[in-house]
């Protein structure tokens, strides 16, 4: 049975006080929760690594949890930060061709992660999605993106800003 919010909060409070038994239980529950949280967001091959990275972040950032607040929204915020960081790394690797060096796990992860981000981009108006792809993913300048899309430079900036804001809301609503 999954632990509820109150028991997780209690375990976390004890862990902050140095109670190792509570901490071990808490990390086990966090591990299960994170596996469910990431299951629909990233490919299965990358799941364990991302869960582990997130648990290490939880460990390093224990003091950032406020015991007077709910625990799961805090865990979700840590998880989302690591997920976005993971997507950024995957895209960066893809852009620089580093994925060709990942011989042990050929290309499956970058492609699948890109699918997650592409799903988000597909939910945006085309004008916003296209300039985000150009400026934030392909690394084109605002001027180049404006020339390629026919939008003015200020409109490109506005569309990038609005699109990213909308993506944040979409990610938040997917919790």
């Amino acid at each position: 049975m999954a632990a509820n919010e109150d028991s997780l909060r209690h375990l976390m409070t004890k862990a902050q006080q140095g109670d190792k038994r509570s901490y071990a239980l808490l990390l086990e529950e966090c591990q299960k929760w994170l596996k469910r949280y990431y299951a629909r967001k990233i490919p299965p091959a990358a799941l364990d690594d991302l869960v582990q990275e997130t648990l290490i972040s939880v460990h390093r950032k224990l003091s950032s949890y406020d015991p007077s607040r709910p625990f799961l929204p805090w865990l979700a915020a840590i998880g989302r930060y690591r997920w976005i960081d993971h997507l950024r790394k995957v895209y960066r690797a893809d852009e620089t061709g580093l994925e060709e060096e990942l011989l042990a796990d050929p290309a499956e992860e970058p492609v699948s992660a890109k699918v997650s981000l592409d799903k988000l981009l597909d939910m945006l108006p085309e004008k916003q999605a296209s300039v985000i792809r150009m400026v934030k993913i392909q690394g084109l300048s605002i001027t180049e993106a404006a020339a390629m899309t026919g939008q003015s430079e200020s409109l490109v900036k506005v569309n990038v800003h609005r699109g990213i804001k909308k993506m944040n809301v979409l990610v938040e609503n997917s919790e």
Partner: peptide
Amino acid sequence: TISQGNGGTTQPFSIDDLVADLTPVNPVR
């Protein structure tokens, strides 16, 4: 050793290691 704070790199993982590394922390206020 896994530091509780900024910095450091991701290292081989085990929940037992994290538990062993636990020290009491004061929540940021």
